[in-house]
Amino acid sequence: MKTLEELKAIRDKMKGQVEIREEDAGSIRIVVGMATCGIAAGARPVLTRLSDIVQEKALGNVTVVQTGCIGLCQYEPIVEVHAAGGDKTTYVMVTPEKAEEIIDMHIIKGQVASKYTIESAKLG
């Protein structure tokens, strides 16, 4: 069973290694809607998956945060990608699998994953 001693060991190992990352002009923000509508539609595993991938791929310029109701409940889970330049892309009905594709295409390759955007969903 995990003990607090193990946390102390992690602290000692990490001393001096951790840089508190401040958001700067070059950072990308990924925002996940976590109100009742988002949670009921499956936002929790999406948020966790996005955070895990960002950590696994060491995407240091990306932060994953949560927000409340975005106001488009029928399209939840919703993920917004706020690019460094200020542009916002809204992805809708996101699943953990789609979240992986969005990171791969949008964040790593720099191409919007058009098939999952709100514009695409509205066109049917």
Binding site: K2, E6, L7, I10, K13, M14, V18, I20, S51
Partner: peptide
């Protein structure tokens, strides 16, 4: 060391 740090989050 924030809780979001991968090793701490995993712990």
């Amino acid at each position: 060391i924030p809780f979001s740090e991968p090793e701490v989050s995993a712990y």
